[in-house]
Structures are given as structure tokens and as C-alpha cells.
């Protein structure tokens, strides 16, 4: 009855081996580091939207909370400086608490009302980060941030492969955690709410508490993604790096990959983020090399086609694969 998660194992095997065939640096690493960060955010959103069926349009806010918590607690411009690993732990905890606190008053709301509240939360978070510039350093962002240390050895920022494997390791941990939860009492309660909220409640599942735990879990993963994103850049970047587009990207990862499917989320992140930071960048390079990248004509620069391609891809995916690229399969039914 215990199904071996073949797609997930294959994913990690391929991903772990990939850098061995690539150079020690280059666009490949930028793209895949981003893919792994967004895999974490996607896995978190998959718990909230994929498993529990709650539409969350404010995932970027939890990334931002993660990034800034990590930065404030570890950067040497402030006195806390608790170090990389404690910083990551604290970030995950605070991400979970933030999700819990947002969820407590609002998770009684039904679908689209909750969606607008999460969207509003995203806006509020951005405003707060922008406006409290004495703490968050406004558009400069907080930097520098510490590197992860292993004993006396620490991972250098230029060490692309090391970061790649470190992030992949975090994704592996997150996948393990999410799958364990999914295949337990907690996960079943989430799924039952998605399937039929009223029936679930009539079976004795407390809806609010269950949703809050899902929200906290998702937020903790998004915060982890945010913290690693900041650590990777050694800066939180400006608050606008966590805007609504980022929340939408996370949502698209989950839906394109297949709602409620862990393997799907991983694939969704590769497709969506890969398209953003690999395909489009490459296209721009080629256009530049061929000399068509003409600044005076808006149509000539491939970068200006980004949204169009992105939008078309979304519409085509939901049309042709309405359940996503890798929809969840029923436990045990696939043999």
C-alpha cells in the first residue's frame, strides 16, 4: 500500500546530479536557485490552496516576512546577529506565527472573501516594509547577510554549486515534511475541507483550527523560501521584490503543476520560474546577439513579450491540462 513516490525520487536524483554536467557558474545556477526558492514557496501554497482549498493571494507577504525576519536577526547592521542556522529556525517559527495570526480572525471567511483579505495582507506588508524604513532600510534593503556555516567552513556567495545543493536540500526537507503531513491525520483533515467543507465539519473536524494549521504550515515554508532568497542575494532587496506578481507566480506554480500534488508543485516551479529566468533571458540574449534588440521599438525586445508569453502559457495549460501537469494520484489506486 505504501506507494513509492517515483516522480519525486526521480526529480531529486536528476536535480542533484545536474550541476555535475554544468560549469561552476552561469545562468543555470541563477535560474535553478530561483526555482528551488519558489519550490519552497510553492510547497507552502500547495498546503494552503492545493490541500486545503483556501485561495491565498498573499504568499509574497510571507516570503517578505521571512526575508526581513532573517535579515534583522542575522545582519551585522543590527545587534542580534544570531547566525545563519538560528536565523533560519527563527524565520520558520515567525512565519508560522504570522500565518496563524492572519488566519485566526479571517479563516472563517468563505473563498473569495479570504482571497481578497490575503491580497490585502500582501499590500499592507509591502507598505509596512516601505514605510518603516528606520527598521527595514526602505528600498535599500537590509544587507549584508551572513553565509551558512558548517563547523568552521562557510559557504561563499560565489560558490554556486554549494548554494544549489543547499537549496535543494531545503526543498528535500520541505517535501519530506509536507508528504508526511499529507499522509497523516493532519493532511486528511485538510483534504476533507477542500473536498467538502460542511461534510468535513459534520464529521467533527474543527474547520478553523485545521485551516489555521494549514495556513501556518504554508506560511512557514514561504518564510523559509524568503529567508533563503535573501541569504542567496545577501540582501533582502527592496520591498517591491515581494509584490503581488510574486504571489501570482506562486499560485501559478501550484495550479500549473497540479493542485494538491507535491511532485506537481516541483515541476510547476521548474516550468514557471524556468520560463521566467531561463527561457526569456536566453531569448533576450539571442535577440541581442542577432542585433534585433532595438531600444526604440517596443516590439523588438523579447523582454517586452514576457507577460504575453506568460499569460498565453497559463491559458494554454489550464485549457489543455486542467488538472495541472502532474495531478495528484490517489493513494493506492495507482499500482
Amino acid at each position: 500500500m505504501r506507494r513509492v513516490p517515483v516522480p519525486i525520487l526521480a526529480y531529486f536524483a536528476v536535480m542533484a546530479a545536474l550541476p555535475l554536467f554544468m560549469g561552476a557558474s552561469g545562468l543555470f545556477y541563477d535560474a535553478f536557485q530561483a526555482i528551488f526558492v519558489f519550490s519552497l514557496v510553492g510547497l507552502g501554497l500547495n498546503v494552503v490552496t492545493g490541500f486545503t482549498g483556501l485561495l491565498n493571494l498573499g504568499m509574497a507577504a510571507f516570503m517578505a516576512i521571512g526575508a526581513y525576519t532573517f535579515a534583522i536577526l542575522t545582519s551585522d547592521i543590527y545587534p542580534f546577529q544570531i547566525g545563519f542556522w538560528w536565523g533560519i529556525l527563527a524565520t520558520v517559527a515567525i512565519g508560522a506565527v504570522a500565518g496563524f495570526l492572519l488566519g485566526a480572525p479571517t479563516l472563517g471567511l468563505s473563498g473569495d472573501y479570504l482571497a481578497i483579505v490575503t491580497m490585502g495582507f500582501g499590500e499592507i506588508t509591502l507598505d509596512v516594509l516601505k514605510n518603516l524604513d528606520a527598521v527595514t532600510k526602505g528600498t535599500q534593503g537590509i544587507n549584508p547577510l551572513p553565509r551558512p556555516t558548517f563547523g568552521s567552513w562557510s559557504l561563499d556567495l560565489q560558490e554556486e554549486r554549494g548554494w544549489y545543493w543547499l537549496l535543494l536540500g531545503f526543498v528535500l526537507l520541505a517535501v519530506l515534511a509536507v508528504r508526511r503531513l499529507e499522509r497523516s491525520r493532519s493532511g486528511r483533515a485538510w483534504l476533507s475541507i477542500r473536498e467538502d467543507a460542511l461534510a468535513s465539519q459534520c464529521m467533527g473536524i474543527p474547520p478553523k483550527l485545521t485551516k489555521m494549521i494549514a495556513f501556518a504550515t504554508g506560511s512557514a515554508l514561504a518564510a523559509l523560501g524568503g529567508a533563503l532568497f535573501a541569504a542567496l542575494l545577501s540582501s533582502t532587496g527592496e520591498p517591491a521584490s515581494y509584490d503581488f506578481q510574486v504571489s501570482i507566480l506562486a499560485l501559478c506554480i501550484v495550479i500549473v503543476g497540479g493542485m494538491g500534488s507535491v511532485a506537481g508543485t516541483l515541476v510547476g516551479a521548474v516550468v514557471m520560474v524556468g520560463m521566467n529566468s531561463l527561457v526569456l533571458v536566453k531569448l533576450a540574449d539571442w535577440a541581442g546577439a542577432a542585433g534585433v534588440g532595438n531600444a526604440s521599438n517596443v516590439l523588438a525586445s523579447p523582454n517586452n513579450w514576457k507577460y504575453l508569453i506568460f499569460g498565453l502559457a497559463l491559458i494554454l495549460v489550464v485549457r489543455l491540462k486542467p488538472d495541472g501537469l502532474l495531478p495528484p494520484r490517489l493513494e493506492g489506486s495507482a499500482s
Partner: peptide, 18 residues
């Protein structure tokens, strides 16, 4: 599903912006 529809709307939004 309602969410597929929503994603399609997001896609349309991106195209219009472009």
C-alpha cells in the same frame, strides 16, 4: 474548477497588460 478559471483570468490579465 473555479481555480482553473481564475488562472485563465490571470493569464488574460498578463496578456492585456502586455
Amino acid at each position: 474548477s473555479k481555480l482553473s478559471l481564475l488562472v485563465s483570468a490571470i493569464g488574460a490579465s498578463f496578456i492585456l497588460v502586455n
